[in-house]
Amino acid sequence: MIYFDKVSKVYSPTSIALEDVSFSVEPKEFVSIVGHSGAGKTTLLKMLLAEDKPTSGKVFFESINVHEASRDELPKIRRRIGSIFQDFRLLPTKTAYENIAFAMEAAGATDEDVENDVPQALELVGLVNKALHFPHELSGGEKQRVAIARAIVNHPEVILADEPTGNLDPINTKEIAELLKKINNLGTTVMLATHNHDVVNSLGRRVITLDKGKLARDDKKGRYII
């Protein structure tokens, strides 16, 4: 479903984010990508979203090389991938409801679908009563749950989560991890970049370990080992 083919990203000769990384992800898999800060986790996810271009190598989403997608194709690919970021990246002038609705409108959903699906997504993340709150009125955990609702509302095939628990306390961290598991159980592929040992170890799923931009390990039922 997702295939990284010898992907390298070199910012400068002394700053190599990724070096010759190759692996593939099957549908409905839950893959954790672990490594120290600067190991290249975020860069890897950015490559799949085409937020950043690789210096060499190719990234495929199904049969499409995302870096050769046209300006019309790229938004369509991105709608099939839901993204969650460490810093939430919510739109500050929109309420929780509007943030989620925006992703649906961007995908061309009808008003009826928006009115129907947004409350459902809010319910899944347990924030129905915060629908009309602006991001600055929400706690870190709540913001991340809004971001998750936004990521899943278009029923994407893949969820990319880049350090989603990086700014959260242990309780919220556990809740977010549970949510991601739930989403994966419903049939969505999840790629989780994190350096949180507890989360990775509690999942007991595939773990890809990056070290200084290189793929160091790929374990089917892995643990956080570095």
Partner: peptide, 16 residues
Amino acid sequence: RDEIAVKRLVGATSRH
């Protein structure tokens, strides 16, 4: 500009 980037990343077209 950050908002514009976020909108693009959730799959909005340039026109949208």
